[in-house]
Amino acid sequence: MSNVKQGLAATALIMASFSSIGAQQCSDVSLQILGSGGPELDDGRASTSYLIWHEDKARVLVDVGSGASIGFDKAGAKFSDVDAILLSHLHTDHAGDLPSFIKGSYFTSRDKVLAIFGPQGNRVMASTNEYAQALLGKQGAFRYLSDYVEGNENYKLDIRSVAPTKQNEFKQSLQSDLAVNAMTVNHGPIPALAWKVSIAGCELVFAGDMTDKFGTFTDFAKNADVVVMHNAIDENASGGAKNLHITPSKITKVLIEAAPKTAVLSHFMNRSLKNQQLFKKSLIKSLKSNVVFAEDGLKINL
């Protein structure tokens, strides 16, 4: 078969998987908050991390900030069940616990490939591949774990840096009931992604840290079962904070237009926690969606 025909066949298979997943009725899926905080040391929360369950199996991790591995243990999850780790970006409060999961997996029965997908790099940040190599590669900080990168352990890491565009959207089918796609979002100078996870007929969308400067997230999140957005700043933020994060009023606007069944607010920081109750009342009044403000360990059934 020619390369062109092989490419077309692969594309058709992926699209068929997405269509099949989307056609199912959403059932037996839940979202658990492993970490609802940011990078601060005094907010009483683990850093950002989310776990998607299907039929009592932990299937997908979205971000693995500091403390995620502890939350994973408390949730009673098994790492051998996880199909993918999706990284929105590579700040420590979103990706710092990656080596902990890989090392911890040595003591599990895991024997299948683990997908680790995240953003491309730029002059400010490493790409996901570079990040993984710097941590786990043969010359990495934790080079004793390099066999996982090289495929010489019980399972191998499938590490990919992705840079989706409107013309070249990233979509990947991982299992017959599981597919993911990503879009680029604005997080100031930091390469960042929003992720959509389609599993067993459910759609879960994770905005990550963003400003919505591109104005494309609403369509990406339209009518999802769950949309998770980050409330890291208050309405009066300025300077660098506002260049990195979306304001509460813009969050409200996006969620009104996207109209998910459930809206989850997370990634709180001390500056946003002080006005949390006011924001919560405002959102409940403005949205038809179910509104949930995240707490570490909280499990939301779809």
Rank of each mutant, 00 (worst) to 15 (best):
I85M: 15
V60Y: 00
V82N: 03
V64T: 15
K74R: 15
G67L: 07
P99W: 14
S47N: 14
A68D: 08
A84G: 13
A84H: 05
I102H: 04
V60L: 08
L86C: 09
G37F: 04
S36W: 04
I70Q: 15
E55H: 14
S69F: 11
F72K: 01
G37L: 04
L98S: 08
L34T: 08
R45Q: 12
V82F: 11
Q32V: 01
H54K: 10
S27I: 05
D42C: 03
G76V: 06
G65F: 01
A68Y: 07
L41W: 06
I52H: 02
D83N: 14
L98K: 03
F101D: 07
G67P: 12
H54C: 08
L86M: 09
S66N: 08
H94M: 11
W53Q: 08
F79D: 04
L34M: 04
D42R: 14
V29A: 10
A46L: 09
S36M: 10
D93H: 14
G65I: 02
D28P: 02
K57W: 00
G35H: 04
D43Y: 07
W53F: 02
S100K: 10
P39T: 06
A95C: 13
P99L: 06
D93K: 11
G44H: 12
L61Y: 01
G67A: 10
L61I: 10
G65H: 06
S49F: 01
S66P: 03
I85E: 02
L51V: 04
S27T: 09
H91A: 13
L41K: 12
L31C: 11
H54Y: 12
D93W: 15
H91D: 14
L87T: 10
I33F: 12
D42G: 02
L41I: 09
P99G: 12
I33E: 05
V29H: 00
S49P: 06
L51R: 00
G38Q: 04
I70V: 14
L87Q: 12
A95Y: 04
D83L: 15
T48D: 12
D93V: 07
H94R: 14
D83K: 14
K57E: 11
E55G: 00
E55A: 15
W53C: 03
D93Y: 14
R59P: 02
L86G: 12
L61N: 00
R59T: 02
H89P: 03
G65T: 04
K74C: 08
I33M: 12
A77Y: 02
H94A: 15
H94S: 14
